[in-house]
């Protein structure tokens, strides 16, 4: 029933309730001060209207007490707003660990979404109700912004960068997805739907779609097609860093710095391999800029994530993925960082 007229958006996520509570507080404060100021203006304007043409009213000097009162009270109120707003923002900005993961690529002028299981959608995203969903997002061209008003969440989607947004849907139905950052001619056409389904219905939707294997397996195929495996070999290390168990771990660089191998690091190492050279290796890798689409990039990342010592494709359920990875990192701790390839 999303095309019916309404004056207030549906509250369809846990965030929506947090934001609305804060919003109503702000509306109350704003209404109080608006009515106060309008009321005082009307009251003074009538009460103290000019009665004699040349009258000069008695002088009333400014009062320090009054000035302090109307400085301190608003200051206290805005600090409450700040603290409350910050707590809601931190909630929005930090996805929970157990979130279901999916990927979003924005381009002029459509949203392309990919599920871990391999389903791909355009201008639509199916998610189950009742559990948090975390989206990792990037753009193929200009800046877009992923906005679902009924969830009260929005985050910009940038080229050359990964951002995340998360939400915890609390009711089933279809909810509008908008691009909120002006992105060119058909900006207003870059809209879609988030379909929130009962978990069982979601599972059957997942199995019903014509996905040709999981995201990681698509990544593995791409890895082979691009011949990445010719250098990044497990059986014959030495020329290129071994990617097994790489994701989420610190990497020692040739210049002495250390970075964590996250999505952004892997993406950068593919499009601009010379930017961060792993210690002990030569900068021999060519750039793959223009050879890998943003969606392919996400598949490669998912494949590399899956190389955590377990066979590719046999990954843990997405929601629980981060924990084994951390564990794997811990297990391999002694051989870290950086020096490992040299030893081998």
């Amino acid at each position: 029933m999303s095309t019916t007229f309404r004056l207030f958006p549906q509250a369809a996520s846990t965030t929506a309730n947090s934001v609305d509570a804060l919003y109503f507080f702000l509306v109350a404060v704003a209404a109080f001060f608006s009515i106060l100021i309008f009321g005082l203006i009307f009251f003074f304007a009538i009460r103290h209207r000019r009665r004699v043409a040349r009258e000069v009213p008695q002088e009333v000097r400014g009062g320090l007490t009054l000035e302090i009162i109307w400085t301190v009270i608003p200051f206290g109120l805005v600090m409450v707003m700040f603290a409350w707003g910050a707590s809601v923002y931190l909630e929005v900005a930090r996805p929970p660990d157990n979130a279901l993961q999916a990927y979003v690529v924005g381009k002029q002028w459509m949203w392309k979404t990919q599920h871990m299981e391999g389903q791909r959608e355009i201008n639509e995203l199916h998610v189950p109700v009742g559990r948090p969903v975390k989206l990792t997002m990037t753009s193929e061209d200009v800046i877009h912004s992923f906005y679902v008003p009924d969830f009260r969440v929005k985050w910009d989607v940038l080229p050359g960068k990964y951002t995340t947004v998360w939400f915890h849907p609390t009711r089933t139905g279809k909810f509008r997805l908008f691009c909120a950052e002006y992105c060119g001619t058909k900006h207003s056409g870059m809209i879609g739907w988030i379909h929130v389904m009962e978990p069982a219905a979601y599972e059957s939707w997942l199995s019903g779609g014509g996905a040709s294997g999981s995201l990681a397996s698509s990544g593995e195929k791409l890895f082979q097609d691009l011949a990445c495996g010719n250098c990044h070999r497990v059986d014959q290390p030495g020329r290129c860093p071994d990617l097994t168990g790489l994701f989420g771990k610190p990497v020692r660089l040739a210049d002495g710095r250390s970075v964590v191998a996250d999505e952004a690091y892997i993406r950068e190492s593919i499009v601009n391999p010379g930017a961060k050279i792993t210690a002990g290796f030569q900068p021999i890798m060519p750039t793959f800029q223009g050879l890998v689409t943003e969606e392919g990039m996400l598949q490669l990342i998912e494949y590399i994530k899956s190389l955590s010592g377990r066979p590719a494709g046999a990954q843990a359920p997405p929601g629980t993925a981060p924990a084994p990875e951390r564990q794997a990192a811990g297990e391999r701790g002694p051989s870290l960082p950086g020096s490992a390839p040299e030893k081998r």
Partner: peptide, 22 residues
């Protein structure tokens, strides 16, 4: 006054996430 008070809404982080660019 109304413009300034609604400025508080957009300065408030959690609310701005929703109303930004609207």
């Amino acid at each position: 006054t109304m413009g300034g008070l609604t400025g508080l809404f957009v300065a408030t982080l959690g609310v701005d996430v929703h109303v930004h660019d609207t």
